[in-house]
Design a binder for these strands. Sequence first.
DNA 1: CTGAAAGCGCTTACAG
DNA 2: CTGAAAGCGCTTACAG
Lengths: 337, 337
Amino acid sequence: MNLKEFASRLELSQTTVSRALSGYPEVKQSTREKVLRAALELGYRPNTSALGLATGRVGAIGIVLKGGGEFGPHTSEFMGGLGNRLQKEEIDILVSTVDSTEAELTAYRRLAASKRVDAVVLHSPYIDDPRVELLTSLRLPFIVHGRPQAEGAFGWLDIDNFGAVHQATRHLLDLGHRRIAFLNGYRGRIFAEHRQDGYQTALTDYGLPLDPALAGNGEFTDEMGFRLMQGFLKLPDRPTAVVAGSMMSALGAMRAIRIEGLKVGEDISLIAHDDVFPYISPENLVPTLSTTRSSIRAAGARIAEMLLELLQGKPAESLREVWPVELVVRRSTAAAP
Amino acid sequence: MNLKEFASRLELSQTTVSRALSGYPEVKQSTREKVLRAALELGYRPNTSALGLATGRVGAIGIVLKGGGEFGPHTSEFMGGLGNRLQKEEIDILVSTVDSTEAELTAYRRLAASKRVDAVVLHSPYIDDPRVELLTSLRLPFIVHGRPQAEGAFGWLDIDNFGAVHQATRHLLDLGHRRIAFLNGYRGRIFAEHRQDGYQTALTDYGLPLDPALAGNGEFTDEMGFRLMQGFLKLPDRPTAVVAGSMMSALGAMRAIRIEGLKVGEDISLIAHDDVFPYISPENLVPTLSTTRSSIRAAGARIAEMLLELLQGKPAESLREVWPVELVVRRSTAAAP
DNA sequence: CTGAAAGCGCTTACAG
DNA sequence: CTGAAAGCGCTTACAG
């Protein structure tokens, strides 16, 4: 059913019905109530395409993901938070899949030119990231999940990655550890650079040098943690402690430690960054896992809020937040042997 | 830039440009090439809303997810496969978040009435699922991931859940196990019922009764595997083998077995269903994990294909597939002690 | 092979 | 407080 038919059933003009539905003030209260009730009863909803054409708003937030690796546990948690907030406004998430960095840029051009979304969220900024500039030039509103290097009139939400790893490393140093391994994301990603700085700075605080043999990089998978940890344990002067970038890599690292006949929390201390996944909790591991904790789902919800504010005209410069990360000490970290 | 301006730059009518872009045959080859080149150069793309209004097609496939639990590892893998196929047609995925079963039904009504998507994918059908009937009555095209009970003119893709668990249980029985625990999804979900039947049937094949104390149900999380396995191990007549519904629950089960001082693949055999996650592989576990294997990502890609065929007018009844599941024997299953 | 114009279903400035 | 009509940017039947 379209507006024309719906209005004629109510014996009102399309104008009045449209205004009643959109909450315009100049409609008589009794008229509005009648219209609202009928819409619910008859299931009338404005056609999104017509609405988009008439208003320029389509009620969707875009996110572009690489089909290879970006449909992972971090992304789904983030989207859960994002969607949870957006649903209240009946705004949906439009996911565009791409298979390369080049294709990602093309996707933003397509989304902008075809007016498919009202705004997008940009994730995992990296060094010399061309995406920020592109979106700006396309005039496609966006909020960054993470913190780009570039200056500009855009909003972002980041967690304190420096502080997280600095605290974690510091905690291990305070416990007497001097050989501390570090499982980081790929260099070049801003979050990984910040974490690297946190690691480095903590070591420097204690007058310790950074041993490149103790730092590994990769995707945060179980396999990454397993392989890299196996490598660390083969070193002549192996580490007594490890900082892992995620629960997934921590799982792999724990297994590598175990099959080497060593005990987590005794022979080797382990602390991980916890993005708070509902299906794998540091409390349930054996031993319970010390973590730096920050919910990626909460970040998604907050970014949804920021996007809504941005679309309501709030200046992008005012939409910037760094979230602190909480250190939670459990049984996997102990005094150095 | 809109069509009017784009056409005038080319000194052609909107009609001709539109036809050239849409690949209509009645356009002169040289004209078409000129238009296509200019579109690329100037970045012209038809406005999606206008296109949607004019054609009724919006270039998006919908999926409705519950914010609480459905943004998980299975869903993201599935969407990765779905998006990977859809991107070739420049079709996006529209994700609607809801927080209850009731809200999910409302979401479908909204998507249908507002013509926000061309079709949807329905996932995890359950007993007496009202969604199939609703979508049918809304005339919103859909493909089911899974296999509903109801008959009707719709397509679906399911894996052989019965066969998977039947094979797995049978494998354990053949190895001499007689006390076999089973970590299943929630009863009521069709896939869980099929798996239950597979388990039951394998036991019956061997003339064994089903012991309800050995069957547990829940979400496929690490925690679920851990808790339920702990319970099984406390039984006076504890199981010598376990069939786990997913890699996540298998991880938890392995941990529970280990902290009980038992060895997987020696004291307790373990086999899991593997949906093939890129970040956690049965090959990397210790011991390597026997599995029944079927890629959920591949299923997503195939369902994308089926949706495209459906939209091209292929009869829904011809779009039905059951995928076999492969048994992969590794080190976690061995002769009963 | 090409073009003028109606129509898709809304919103909103303008008029009353 | 209400309505007639223009306009958003496309596609496509119709005419040539």
